[in-house]
Design a protein around this nucleic acid. Structure first.
Lengths: 198, 198
DNA sequence: GTCTATACACGGATAGAC
DNA sequence: GTCTATCCGTGTATAGAC
């Protein structure tokens, strides 16, 4: 990366029109990924959706993957922000339950974001460090074990299982919209709860 | 020209050479998917790995996706066959534990197959009916609940969570080979066990 | 029956004109 | 800043050599 960062002025290349374009491109990309999936998300389709040419898209983002990655992080930031806020304002002993409920709730409430996140999360394309996924939850689980005064569990395995379980439940909901994830999430909450009860 | 090879043995179109070629193509495909992932698995790479041209590959398989799909099913058949055999020869009350242990054990023992299955499972490309994934385990869970005489649980949710959990554990093992999935699987076994203990 | 050669349409990406 | 023109790679279809 460049080492620029000279001033807070930021005249460099942040025209209003450019910022609007980029926001629009993100929005269009999220929509296409949500509707047709990662594989069917072509540069041409994004360009068409934004009313520009492929090259114009690649002016604003160095590569297609960079654009999709940015869109993914944009959506992920909203998710983890909401989940983190919910967990921090809760009883540590109930942390895991709050984590599961708020995450499933957010995903159920934002189908567009939901499909995008599942696609990105499961797609090994841009392999993010798995650690960033399970480590926060592992700490929440350990905190809950301490607050409850029970012997510590295998936090890493428990967090991995819970994370994978959430993915599976949400994916099932996407495939069968009639499936009630909120109810299903309570099954996971119970499993975590009993795992922290001895 | 008029080579009247009407000798004994297998003529027809299941020539030995053809069967060998197809087996080789399957093997090469599994290797490439295991090593580089679904996205990076191109027809040219498969052909190169087999020492033939792209068209030769498409002579044996109608399309690239058909070949990859066949390779996936080839690997999956070995997995579900082993798991099914293990579960059938076990105490129904211990069905879920046997299921988890044999599945994780098989995946840990066959890294190539493992990566292939995870890739295919998570990749929304050829969307297999999710039902075929969780329904067998759901029935095993219900059988275990009956055998234990406990009130029935939400078998669908429990099976989905366990399946997603297994995926996550195996994926973590692929990313960090030092991670002991066998130990981690016991955490999942315990969670399922306590879920079936009331 | 098995393959090579070739050609096509589409994908992402680059160079340079306006 | 956006476009046209162009390039290379990928999947697929066809012809025809052996």
């Amino acid at each position: 990366m460049t080492t620029g960062r000279r001033d807070a002025g930021a005249h460099r290349e942040s025209t209003l029109a450019t910022q609007a374009r980029r926001a629009q491109l993100l929005d269009v990309t999220i929509g296409i990924v949500a509707e047709h999936g990662y594989a069917q998300t072509s540069l041409a389709r994004i360009a068409e959706g934004a009313g520009v040419t492929k090259a114009a898209v690649l002016y604003h983002y160095p590569t297609k993957d960079a654009l999709v990655e940015t869109a993914y992080e944009h959506v992920l930031t909203a998710l983890i922000g909401e989940v983190a806020a919910a967990v921090e304002g809760a009883d540590p002993a109930e942390g895991p339950a709050v984590y599961v409920r708020s995450m499933v709730g957010h995903l159920a409430a934002h189908p567009r974001h939901s499909r995008m996140i599942i696609e990105a999360m499961t797609n090994a394309g841009a392999d993010h460090d798995p650690r960033t996924r399970w480590e926060p939850l592992a700490q929440i689980i350990e905190a809950a074990a301490r607050a409850r005064g029970v012997e510590p569990v295998d936090a890493r395995a428990t967090a991995l299982i819970a994370g994978g379980g959430i993915d599976a439940l949400v994916a099932e909901h996407l495939h069968d919209p009639g499936y009630d994830v909120t109810v299903a999430a309570e099954t996971l909450v119970r499993m975590l709860d009993t795992a922290l009860s001895r």
